[in-house]
Simulated scan of single mutants.
Amino acid sequence: MAGYVDLSASLSTRTPKIDGPDTRAVVWLDIDNTLYPKSSKIHLLMQQKIHAYFLSLGLSEEKASVLHKKYYSEYGLAIRGLVKHHEIDALDYDRVCDASLPLEEILSYNPELRKLLQDIDPSKARILGLTNAYKTHGLRVLNIIGVSDLIEALVYCDYGRPDNDFGCKPEAGFFNEATAFAFPSHPPDTPLPTQYFVDDSLLNITASLDLGFKSVHFKEKGEWDTDHGRVNNLPVKGKEGLVVTTVDDLEALREVWSEIFFDGSERK
């Protein structure tokens, strides 16, 4: 199951008065390798720390590498395989791996990203985060890059669950839980407002398309494939006939999702 953090009390954007159910669209933002560039090499540091964690369990270099790839492929996250097969403490894993990353030394305030999100019209759409990390990491990144006050809520992988039953993207159940968090009072059997989604993983984008999201695959020029060759890099259709759009610059969202930006908001 997913976790949820309500950040609405800290919003700096003007929230329109809503009478009845909130029918505004939702913009879901992936965080890692989407809101900051892969060139930061945070993913490489993360991989090193995860590999070291496997080794700390007494595994050989070869076995650690094999299981790391196997668990990531089968469960979406290495930690889920570790919890299932090695009975580790998920919060200890987070402390040793994600929480120990020197993010403050690598990332910094991003005025261009902030302006992009500020130009989304709050009368048309709300902005939420959707991450496969634990909440501590997700909130830390949002704070460092300077956009936490523009995000209404964060849906995350809840490593803190006593039963260790936490989902992640690209599982349909994880997306469905996120939708339920975003629209808690939506009348049943009525169409949901549009859900926009941007992520650097094509697997996650494909899964969201199948659920009717209006999704954009973010793939920087010259950068490695997030899914490590597990999918073919071909156009993918969702169940509703939506076709994934790929961009190499988040500024392109001003054009792709022009209907939710303020009038006159153009790509720089």
Rank of each mutant, 00 (worst) to 15 (best):
G222E: 14
Q195Y: 05
F197E: 05
I205Y: 01
P184V: 07
D158A: 09
E251F: 05
V141R: 03
F213H: 14
V244C: 04
P184L: 14
H228S: 13
V141L: 09
G173H: 12
E240N: 05
T245C: 09
A252D: 15
H217M: 02
L211G: 10
I205V: 15
K237C: 12
P170H: 12
F183T: 07
T206R: 11
A207V: 09
F181T: 01
F174V: 07
A153E: 08
I145P: 02
E240D: 13
G222M: 14
D158H: 09
T226L: 02
V244Q: 13
W224H: 12
L139N: 04
G146Q: 10
W224Q: 14
D163S: 04
F183E: 01
E223R: 13
L250I: 07
L142S: 01
N176C: 12
V236I: 15
N232I: 05
N233A: 13
H186C: 05
Y196Q: 07
G212Y: 08
A172S: 13
P193F: 08
S148V: 14
H228L: 09
F166P: 00
I144W: 11
A252K: 10
G229C: 06
Y156W: 09
R161N: 00
I144K: 06
G160M: 01
V243A: 04
L142T: 00
V247W: 05
P187D: 03
V244T: 01
S208P: 00
V244E: 14
V198P: 03
D199R: 02
L150H: 00
F213Y: 15
F174E: 02
